[in-house]
Measured scan of single mutants.
Amino acid sequence: TETRTFDSEEEAKKAQKEAEKQGRTVTITRRDDRWEVRFD
């Protein structure tokens, strides 16, 4: 599991799309003013 933090939802969604192309499961969580993206 890898976790990355982004400043914008746009960036988080971009990372999510990339990871899903690779067949990974992605979870996006809102953390205050940041977006946390978890790759499984």
Results as ranks from 00 to 15, higher is better:
Thr1Trp: 15
Thr1Ser: 14
Thr1Gln: 12
Thr1Asn: 12
Glu2Ile: 14
Glu2Thr: 13
Glu2Tyr: 02
Glu2Pro: 09
Glu2Val: 14
Glu2Phe: 03
Thr3Phe: 09
Thr3Gln: 08
Thr3Ile: 14
Thr3Asp: 07
Thr3Gly: 07
Thr3His: 09
Thr3Met: 11
Arg4Gly: 07
Arg4Cys: 09
Arg4Asp: 07
Arg4Trp: 10
Arg4Asn: 08
Arg4Ala: 11
Arg4Leu: 15
Arg4Met: 15
Thr5Ile: 15
Thr5Leu: 15
Thr5Ser: 13
Thr5Trp: 15
Thr5His: 13
Thr5Gln: 11
Thr5Cys: 08
Thr5Gly: 06
Phe6Pro: 02
Phe6Met: 04
Phe6Trp: 03
Phe6His: 03
Phe6Gln: 02
Phe6Glu: 02
Asp7Thr: 05
Asp7Pro: 11
Asp7Gln: 06
Asp7His: 06
Asp7Ile: 05
Asp7Glu: 10
Ser8Ile: 03
Ser8Phe: 04
Ser8Ala: 04
Glu9Asn: 02
Glu9Tyr: 13
Glu9His: 05
Glu9Gln: 05
Glu9Trp: 10
Glu10Tyr: 08
Glu10Lys: 05
Glu10His: 06
Glu11Thr: 05
Glu11His: 03
Glu11Gln: 08
Ala12Thr: 03
Ala12Lys: 00
Ala12Trp: 01
Ala12Ser: 03
Ala12Asn: 01
Ala12Val: 06
Lys13Val: 14
Lys13Ile: 15
Lys13Gln: 12
Lys13Arg: 12
Lys13Ala: 09
Lys13Thr: 10
Lys13Gly: 05
Lys14Leu: 14
Lys14Gly: 08
Lys14Asn: 14
Lys14Ser: 11
Lys14Glu: 14
Ala15Trp: 08
Ala15Phe: 14
Ala15Ile: 11
Ala15Leu: 09
Ala15Met: 10
Ala15Arg: 04
Gln16Ala: 15
Gln16Lys: 13
Gln16Val: 14
Gln16Asp: 02
Gln16Pro: 01
Gln16Thr: 07
Gln16Cys: 11
Gln16His: 06
Gln16Phe: 12
Lys17Arg: 13
Lys17Asn: 10
Lys17Gly: 10
Lys17Leu: 15
Lys17Phe: 12
Lys17Glu: 14
Lys17Gln: 13
Lys17Pro: 01
Glu18Ile: 10
Glu18Gln: 09
Glu18Gly: 05
Glu18Trp: 04
Glu18Ala: 10
Glu18Phe: 04
Ala19Thr: 03
Ala19Leu: 15
Ala19Met: 13
Ala19Gly: 10
Ala19Gln: 06
Ala19Phe: 13
Glu20Phe: 05
Glu20Asp: 06
Glu20Arg: 07
Glu20Met: 11
Glu20Asn: 09
Glu20Ile: 11
Glu20Gln: 10
Lys21Val: 10
Lys21Trp: 06
Lys21Phe: 08
Lys21Gly: 13
Lys21Arg: 13
Lys21Leu: 15
Gln22Thr: 11
Gln22Trp: 05
Gln22His: 13
Gln22Pro: 04
Gln22Met: 14
Gln22Phe: 05
Gln22Val: 11
Gly23Glu: 03
Gly23His: 06
Gly23Arg: 03
Gly23Gln: 04
Gly23Leu: 04
Gly23Val: 02
Gly23Asp: 04
Gly23Ile: 02
Gly23Thr: 02
Arg24His: 15
Arg24Pro: 02
Arg24Glu: 08
Arg24Asp: 12
Arg24Ile: 15
Arg24Trp: 05
Thr25Met: 08
Thr25Ser: 13
Thr25Pro: 07
Thr25Asp: 08
Thr25Glu: 10
Thr25Ala: 11
Val26Asn: 01
Val26Pro: 05
Val26Glu: 02
Val26Tyr: 00
Val26Ser: 13
Val26Phe: 00
Thr27Tyr: 00
Thr27Gly: 04
Thr27Pro: 02
Thr27Ile: 14
Thr27Val: 13
Thr27Cys: 06
Thr27Ala: 07
Thr27Asn: 06
Ile28Ser: 01
Ile28Thr: 03
Ile28Lys: 01
Ile28Val: 12
Ile28Gln: 01
Ile28Tyr: 00
Ile28Leu: 01
Thr29Glu: 11
Thr29Ile: 11
Thr29Asp: 06
Thr29Met: 03
Thr29His: 07
Thr29Arg: 05
Thr29Lys: 06
Thr29Leu: 03
Thr29Val: 13
Arg30Asn: 11
Arg30Pro: 09
Arg30His: 12
Arg31His: 14
Arg31Ile: 15
Arg31Phe: 11
Arg31Asp: 07
Arg31Gly: 06
Arg31Pro: 03
Arg31Glu: 08
Arg31Ala: 10
Asp32Ile: 04
Asp32Trp: 00
Asp32Tyr: 02
Asp33Val: 02
Asp33Phe: 00
Asp33Arg: 02
Asp33Pro: 03
Arg34Lys: 15
Arg34Tyr: 14
Arg34Trp: 11
Arg34Met: 14
Arg34Ser: 12
Arg34Leu: 12
Trp35His: 01
Trp35Thr: 01
Trp35Asn: 01
Trp35Leu: 02
Trp35Pro: 01
Trp35Ile: 03
Glu36Gln: 04
Glu36Gly: 00
Glu36Ala: 01
Val37Tyr: 00
Val37Ile: 08
Val37Leu: 06
Val37Asp: 02
Val37Pro: 02
Val37Met: 03
Val37Cys: 03
Arg38Phe: 07
Arg38Tyr: 05
Arg38Asn: 12
Arg38Thr: 14
Arg38Gln: 14
Arg38Ser: 14
Phe39Thr: 09
Phe39Trp: 11
Phe39Val: 13
Phe39Glu: 10
Phe39His: 06
Phe39Gln: 06
Phe39Pro: 05
Phe39Gly: 05
Asp40Val: 11
Asp40Phe: 05
Asp40Pro: 07
Asp40Arg: 04
Asp40Leu: 10
Asp40Ser: 10
Asp40Thr: 10
